[in-house]
Design a protein around this nucleic acid. Structure first.
Length: 956
RNA sequence: GCUCGAGUGGUGGAAUUGGUAGACACGUUGGACUUAAAAUCCAAUGGGCAUUGCGCCCGUGCGGGUUCAAGUCCCGCCUCGAGUACCA
């Protein structure tokens, strides 16, 4: 019978479930450790072998930490809201809840077969009202908060209102887009609606007219991170810009703290870099260019500086005053003397007010043209220079010269102020624009030691921050580094601007025009949003007759009957986006059944935050930023005790598919084997990897695969049909999907776990190839033979182990421990193989060696470890057994086999005592018999001896 | 374009601090066992030259450099992957 994995695994999985082996509770006397996997969206396709990779790694770590005496929180749940179930609902009418429920059971079944040590009693599902109650609750807290830059944290709205009532808003420095000033008297004279509208400009969850990514095919708005290359991330549908009234979260208020927090967490450098790029901090100056002729009055009657999000310093640029100019942001204020024109984004609200009558037609045509271009078009035609002159002029504040104002779509309305001062000499985009339209180019920075040449002869601009200022009035002669602060001081003195910092990060658009998501706990009275009272949560997702928008284009929730409050006020009809539920789930695991609070203070102060978080790097810009923001907010309001939610994060690499190909001779039903394909005109076709073993095609299986291949003929080589192969994304259409259930059926979960780890470094992408799995399966069978003979009789003895046997055990213990601690699971598996090989060679069947070995193995292969642990007479479960210690004394050797090199090339080995003095080693090496040949006829110039490493003899 | 990461046998990969390149495994070849197959076990396996023996030369994407010693450090390229994309 031998190693009967199927029986063993079923038995122990049942045992763990029945005994709740992995259930955890707060134990104040024990140190905690929180190991978390990014919870999955349960798709209809089930798990393929790529999904559990990270789960296996984290499970090994969690089990290891348990052996090391930690109280380990290792939960799992489901990110249950999502588009696929809803798309399916639209097609079939099946409620997404039913589809989701079904997919979750399938996931759960598959996960259980792999033997994870999750505490399933803590499972959360984002679509469960008991869970989303707290998502809604957090939204209300965000709605009821504003960001005070003075205290640098979120504060309650009551405090803000009190300040308005006593002093107006002139002393308030809040994150947001509020530019109008009002006094206490004015505030107190406003009616409810006016006040509420003003408050929306401060709230951390706010409603506003925003330029959004509208995806017509999905019928919804998407966040920036959900759009890739102008297409929706899910489904790849075109996305366009549209102005819509939407909920947003004021994540920009946290930009600097999100950036600073990266210093305190252990994420990979590349991931931190991605987050830094996404936040996109840049330092510079904001300043106003006076217009030559004042602009037409704003159609809205008052100046609304919608672009300035990061706030002005009121003493320099009084908010609310009609600036009569164009406000720009620049990171290179030093080049101000080189600003020869200005460019506004076509959407800039000043465009209509400054355009001269003779240019109006051309300008409006351009604005319309840019508006109608899709995002994708705009992105692919980046190189094409387009723009129109408005006819208006501004004054360069330093040169006092008038400079023309253009509009062009290379200036983005969403960044900075939506307007720029163009310095064609030192910015490549401005340079290209100036060249194209024949605008003047002035050089104001010169490379050190170079004589300036006429810009008319230049091929590119000089963009570097290295150099000396020329043609620049009072800063001429200064270096760029000196000139930047000097310029900022000057513009601040002149009262036309100030030094400031800009972020690329945008507020997160938080509404979706979809059904399958959290309803907003919001109702409208007189068109103004109000939160529901907390005791009315959760606001449950209503039933609808169809999952489509209404005839009038409203989202699906508008179809719900009685979608109103008790008092009859209409409820919000948008739902929350996918990242709402995933932004705080790790906190809920700490206290998942609490119906009174999100989580208790006790649970939070015990579990604190996630010690190890594992997941894919596709969440770098989305989930991981939102969750950090969410957590920081909860920290500000005193709920979360840690400011950063994830202490250490590891991104597991993707498992790629390895596709198999057959070669069909064109126009025939004849297939030619891989190495003969060059002799024919062939067509490359995917063959299902399940019909291919070690690149050899099962011809009969292939014929039966699809009717069109029934009569296929084959040109073989050596009697076999050899397939070609290539590494591609694992997908159904490429017929290269490997399902874990089939492998577990054939080899068992322990083999699958070991093999997934053996494949290569955790963080690296790697191709899936089933061939190698035999190797780890053989290892487990070999290991089994250390404990049992061919007749299934236990052959473990109580004999005292030899020095050699102890050395194997202690060497392995040391290696396994250090490999787990540095997340090098692939080398860990090979260490087990080496250990089993060596113990087999030593014919070791001794309990003193084999009992601790079972514990070492248990994080990787828990089922077989439990079984061995039990047959050796221990009481279950092995999961709480202490991890064996290793003792260096068994590892030390009396002699060391020195590799002896001559001029750096290893020539022979020499066994010498480890405590031999250096000079004696040197002597021994030179006098060795084998050394003669290399020294002969040459002088020994130098001998390098590194004890217990190497001897290198330099001859010549 | 910019930023980050990676290039090692037929394949996945190892080499943790500059110190024996190719651990471990797959595959391949040969052998043992067997009526046969499977399973198992043993041996060989980077390339080349020599295989009468000891052996010798080359070799970690390419070209330089530092060092007694470089897959590892430095400089300059090439290729692939990821992110980002007019961010002023």
């Amino acid at each position: 019978m031998g190693y009967d994995f199927s029986k063993i695994e079923k038995h122990w999985q049942k045992y763990w479930a029945e005994n709740k082996t992995f259930k955890v509770d707060i134990e104040h006397g024990k140190p905690k450790f929180y190991v978390l996997d990014m919870f999955p969206y349960p798709s209809g396709a089930g798990l393929h072998v790529g999904h559990p990779l990270g789960y296996i790694a984290s499970d090994i770590y969690a089990r290891y930490k348990r052996h090391k005496g930690f109280n380990v929180l290792h939960p799992m749940g489901f990110d249950a809201y999502g588009l696929p179930a809803e798309q399916y609902a639209i097609q079939t009418g099946t409620h997404p809840e039913i589809t989701t429920e079904k997919n979750i059971s399938r996931y759960r079944e598959q996960l259980d077969k792999i033997g994870f040590s999750y505490d399933w009693d803590r499972e959360v599902r984002t679509s469960d009202p008991a869970y989303y109650k707290w998502t809604q609750w957090t939204f209300i807290q965000l709605f009821n908060s504003w960001y005070d830059k003075k205290s640098d944290k979120a504060e309650p709205m009551e405090k803000l209102i009190a300040l308005f009532e006593s002093n107006g808003n002139s002393e308030i420095d809040a994150a947001g887009d509020m530019t109008d000033l009002f006094s206490a008297e004015e505030w107190n004279s406003y009616n409810e609606k006016q006040q509420q509208e003003i408050l929306l400009h401060y709230r951390l969850a706010y409603l506003s007219d925003t330029m959004v990514n509208w995806c017509p095919a999905l019928g919804t708005v998407l966040a920036n991170d959900e759009v890739k290359d102008g297409l929706s991330e899910r489904g790849g549908h075109p996305v366009e810009k549209k102005l819509m009234r939407q909920w947003s979260l004021r994540i920009t208020a946290y930009a600097q703290r999100l950036l600073d927090g990266l210093e305190k967490v252990e994420f990979s450098d590349s991931l931190k870099e991605m987050q830094r790029n996404w936040i996109g901090r840049s330092e510079g100056a904001s300043l106003v260019f006076r217009l030559k002729t004042p602009p037409q009055p704003s159609p809205r009657g008052r100046e609304q500086d919608t672009h300035q999000k990061q706030g002005a310093t009121p003493s320099i640029l009084p908010r609310g005053e009609d600036l009569g100019g164009v406000k720009v942001f620049t990171t290179r204020p030093d080049t101000l003397f080189g600003a020869t024109f200005m460019v506004l984004a076509p959407e800039h609200e000043l465009v209509e007010r400054i355009v001269t009558p003779e240019n109006r037609k051309k300008v409006m045509e351009y604005v319309t043209w840019t508006k109608n271009r899709s995002e994708r078009e705009r992105m692919t035609e980046v190189k094409k220079v387009t723009g129109v002159f408005t006819g208006a002029y501004a004054m360069n504040p330093f040169t006092e010269k008038e400079i023309p104002i253009w509009i062009a779509d290379y200036v983005l309305s969403g960044y900075g102020t939506g307007a720029i001062m163009a310095v064609p000499g030192h910015d490549s985009r401005d340079f290209a624009f100036a060249r194209h339209f024949g605008l003047p180019i002035i050089q104001v920075v010169s490379r050190k030691g170079e004589t300036p040449s006429a810009p008319s002869g230049w091929e590119t601009s000089y963009d570097s921050k290295e150099g000396v200022m020329i043609n620049s009035g009072f800063i001429t002669g200064l270096s760029v580094k000196e000139a930047i602060p000097a310029t900022i001081r000057k513009i601040e003195e002149m009262g036309i601007g100030y030094g400031t910092t800009n972020y690329r990060l945008r507020d997160a658009i938080f509404s979706r025009q979809r059904y399958w998501g959290e309803p907003f706990p919001i109702y409208y009275k007189d068109g103004i949003p109000y939160p529901l009272p907390e005791n009315e949560l959760p606001l449950r997702l209503p039933k609808v007759d169809k999952y489509l928008p209404t005839e009038s284009g409203d989202p699906p929730l508008a179809r719900a009957r009685n979608w109103v409050t008790k008092e009859g006020y209409p409820l919000e009809i948008n739902t929350m986006p996918g990242f709402a539920g995933s932004s705080g789930y790790y906190l809920r695991y700490m206290d998942p059944h609490n119906s009174e609070e999100y989580f208790s203070k006790e649970a939070n102060t015990y579990w604190r935050n996630v010690d190890l978080y594992l997941g894919g790097d596709e969440h770098a810009a989305g989930h991981l930023i939102y969750a950090r923001f969410w957590n920081k907010f909860l920290f500000d309001i005193g709920l979360a005790c840690e400011e950063e939610p994830f202490k250490k994060l590891i991104n597991q690499g993707k498992i790629q598919g390895r596709s198999s190909f057959v070669y069909r001779i064109q126009g025939t039903n004849k297939f030619v084997s891989y190495n003969l394909r060059k002799e024919y005109q062939t067509q490359l076709l995917h063959a299902d990897i399940n019909m291919v073993d070690n690149d050899v095609l099962d011809v009969e299986a292939f014929k039966n695969w699809m009717p069109e291949y029934r009569d296929a003929e084959f040109i073989l080589e050596d009697g076999k049909y050899i397939c070609g192969h290539e590494v591609e994304k694992m997908s159904k259409s490429k017929h290269n999907v490997q399902n874990p259930d089939e492998l577990i059926e054939k080899y068992g979960a322990d083999t699958l776990r070991l093999y997934e780890m053996f494949l290569g470094p955790l963080e690296q992408d790697k191709p899936w190839d089933t061939n190698g799995i035999e190797g780890v399966f053989r290892f487990l069978k070999k290991l089994w033979r250390l404990y049992f003979n061919e007749n299934d009789l236990l052959i473990v003895t109580d004999e005292k182990p030899t020095g050699a046997e102890l050395k194997v055990l202690h060497k392995t213990t040391k290696k396994i421990q250090s490999d787990i601690e540095r997340f090098s699971f692939n080398t860990g598996v090979s260490a087990f193989m080496i250990c089993a090989n060596e113990l087999t060679d030593l014919k070791c069947h001794k309990s003193e060696i084999l009992t601790p070995l079972a514990v070492l193995l248990s994080p990787y292969a828990p089922h077989i470890a439990e079984e061995l642990w039990k047959v050796l007479g221990n009481s279950p479960s092995i999961s709480s057994a202490p991890f064996p210690d290793y003792d260096e004394k068994y590892l030390t050797e009396n002699t060391f086999d020195y590799p002896v090199s001559f001029n750096g090339k290893m020539r022979f080995k020499l066994s010498l005592p480890v405590d031999m003095p250096k000079d004696e080693i040197e002597k021994a090496a030179i006098e060795a018999e084998a050394a003669k040949k290399w020294i002969q006829g040459k002088n020994v110039r130098k001998v390098i001896v590194v004890p217990k490493r190497i001897i290198n003899v330099v001859v010549g």
